[in-house]
Write a protein that binds this DNA or RNA. Structure first.
Lengths: 124, 124
DNA sequence: CTTTCATTTGAACATCTGTTCAAATATTAT
DNA sequence: ATAATATTTGAACAGATGTTCAAATGAAAG
């Protein structure tokens, strides 16, 4: 985190004016809050790892426990658990415990829709 | 790139069986190709940076040149250009040259839809 | 052809990320 | 209690990522 407050760039050396000042103002007016855009990027960051995408895709089909997911992805239970924590934090998956076993499933249908959109963009 | 071929985990020390073998097979059968899932993650990775999200959002409103975007985001033209290259590579933006100036715009409406989905997930 | 402006490029650097490994926790059975 | 199994956790490490800076390119004007 933390890469704000740089400086002012692109101020014309003579006049102090930018190329399209009006356009900039009008676009700027319609930009969502810095924080919202930051959170949005954070959300997509979660989808931006193939291990996590595989986990989500696996959960499309069924509720699964950590060990099953690990075997399915050919990954270590530890690695899977670490990533499940990320997905949990982003409220993309939910879980329930049954004895020693913890079962994970998709939190809601947004995940399907978001991934579906991505697939559409890729497959055309 | 490159983190395949680890080992086999989770093979029961005695029997050599996993907890839910049938489930694993059936889920595995419906999983898309490794490569497709990888590309999907790569696509989302592009959305997973606040600078790039801001650029895309700015382009929702209008076609803009590099300098304008830089001023809008309070970032250096160089940083913006680097990120525009990433967006170009992912076919999310297109550009045209007019004299010294290069104008960028959204490649298609998928970008809007994908970002819209993310916003929906956040704002509920 | 030299200058100027807009953009791009490449290398360097600091930061972030995901996996591994070992150890800890949780739950059930003996 | 002790053992066994499933999962979680934390530290360490390697690799990826985004910004900066300086230098290069492209295009129009003098």
């Amino acid at each position: 985190m933390g890469k704000r407050d740089e400086q002012d760039f692109r101020v014309d050396s003579e006049t102090g004016e930018s190329i399209h000042p009006d356009l900039i103002s009008s676009v700027n007016a319609d930009m969502p809050d810095e924080e919202l855009l930051y959170d949005l990027a954070e959300l997509y960051k979660v989808f931006g790892d193939s291990t996590r995408i595989k986990i989500l895709y696996a959960l499309f089909e069924a509720e699964l426990c950590v060990g099953d997911i690990a075997e399915l992805l050919n990954a270590s239970p530890s690695a899977v658990s670490h990533q499940l924590r990320v997905l949990k934090t982003s409220k993309l998956v939910k879980f329930r415990r049954e004895g020693k076993t913890v079962y994970y499933s998709l939190a809601d249908d947004h995940v399907r829709t978001i991934i579906g959109m991505g697939m559409e963009h890729l497959c055309e």
